[in-house]
Design a protein around this nucleic acid. Sequence first.
DNA 1: AATAATATTGTTAACGTGTGCATTATATGT
DNA 2: ACATATAATGCACACGTTAACAATATTATT
Lengths: 334, 334
Amino acid sequence: MSVTIKDIAKLVGVSHTTVSRALNDSPLISEKTKVKIKAIASELQYTPNYNAKSLVLDKSYNVGLFFSTIKEGTSSSFFHEVVRGVNHILHKEFSLIVSGIDDYMSFNEVNKKHFDGIIVMSQSTKDDFFIYNILEKNIPLVVLNKEIPDAPIINILSDDRMGAFKATEYFIKEGHRQIAIIEGKKGFKSSQERKEGFLDALLTYDIPINKDFMVEGKYDLESGYLEMRKLLTRSILPTAVFCSNDDMAVGAMKAIAESGRSIPGDISLIGFDDNVFASFLSPALTTVKRPIEEISKEGTQKLLRLINNKQTKKETIYMKTTLQIRESVKRIEL
Amino acid sequence: MSVTIKDIAKLVGVSHTTVSRALNDSPLISEKTKVKIKAIASELQYTPNYNAKSLVLDKSYNVGLFFSTIKEGTSSSFFHEVVRGVNHILHKEFSLIVSGIDDYMSFNEVNKKHFDGIIVMSQSTKDDFFIYNILEKNIPLVVLNKEIPDAPIINILSDDRMGAFKATEYFIKEGHRQIAIIEGKKGFKSSQERKEGFLDALLTYDIPINKDFMVEGKYDLESGYLEMRKLLTRSILPTAVFCSNDDMAVGAMKAIAESGRSIPGDISLIGFDDNVFASFLSPALTTVKRPIEEISKEGTQKLLRLINNKQTKKETIYMKTTLQIRESVKRIEL
DNA sequence: AATAATATTGTTAACGTGTGCATTATATGT
DNA sequence: ACATATAATGCACACGTTAACAATATTATT
């Protein structure tokens, strides 16, 4: 069927071992024969059978990219950015297998034979079981987006807490005192971090915390819309709302517009992520930029080093979040 | 290191052949021994080495999902929906390898040993070379989204032309006569289809075609914005703009808002795709729903049948596009 | 020119699994 | 009980590649 090194060997008149070595640029083989063999190989369009290589070299040529889920709770731009980032760095040598942790019943299929390395884009605390499982199996691993504190893991994340703090602080400095938050999905680490940053800021600036101004979303458009509607029923309305991601901010904008109010005229808004849409909304959304693509790229680079044993030790890298000031926050004179 | 059938064989006191047969439920093996072997196998948490299986069975356990590119020109929601759709149907038996056609220099690595089947989400006409290559190699193939007319291929696509026609027709029936189009990315089949549907409608209803009302976008937010700005410089303004996808519609909305005009008060808008954002915009975007997830699911089902030799013959399936009427089109009294 | 050193190639087994064929154990028919 | 059919298991090899070791060809050293 397809060309093997044995076929080449016969044609050149050498052993298949010599062919194998020549194609792998072993120093054992003379230049002359290398040239001859490579010529014929490329003429026959030889491609190695990676299954055979895998078997003997104990290398799968696969890298797994695992999301908590690819069904819901993951925003499209987030998903796309991650895949793009990883794909950009990953050498062509590796195939990128994308899947959701929640697609697996048991993790037996996720093993060293199948994956040379694994990137977990971790969102939910439910992922921990999976992560520790990979760790036990000794598969090169990088965890993005969520901190795994006491484990020997390379961990890359954005400083969400600080981002949320900065956003809230900005509200305060612009004169806002009635500040609400639409929290992220329950069980997601990022939801907690952003909420804490938000509360921190309020505490720091001595703004009383109002339970009525804290609602729980699910990181999707729909929940942003619904939770904002809830906020609009309060007897005292917030003048500013911090949305835990941009998707929910879009939903919130919808709810505010429907109520006949304007942004930022009546209510100011800040999002989180800075997804592709943010700057194209009307008004352009002030939001916390989270460098997802950078995190993904950096993580992939680290994973490659790990696979090649260039790096072994635990490392936690925080990527900075930055406030992108645009048009959705109004200054209030006190 | 890891458990093999030979290990199990020793423990049970049979040959590894018997173990292999037992685990594959061969009728040659007695129930008694099957039970015994399976018990031990699961006790040892045996997982077959798929590399070895691949080698001997000539089966890769991989399905490839190829986009024209995953870098740009592909909108995030589109990308996400496709991956989600495919992932949803694909049996766990297969790993899903996601990549961009433009990541490959040569297609040698894309071969039968590496992929049991391939789904091409084809956007650009540049993909044809790749597609014919796969076809030659006799790898089970399904092409989504773009028609490959004279080839024995299973082809699943949305009726974009009809969708664009319906959208334009709707404009016309609502009284619009000055209708512009922001076309999709050059070289993309869908751009052409949608443009043709648009022109068809104008012709059908005897509306003169105005070159000034036809601008070329790139399917992204930015270009929607820029092209809309161009349209806004025309001496006679369009009262309606058909955007070849939703992303560009969002960009256009931005440009319109910036110019101080309102939607649909001054300018009506229709998009294409019905992505997650569409209904949450203000105003909610009237758009042509393209069943991307359905197409992806259907395509995956077909591919699985192809892999299992249940289906062999060429087939072209059109999925209906439907106009989602929301708030971005105003009725004009003539 | 003879020997040692070194560069190049070949032989053989291994990776873990599945399968054709040979072999042995069991059941069936008389 | 014996021959025969059939069910159950084992043996040996194959898949395509790499690698340890053995063997041979070439070059360097005296």
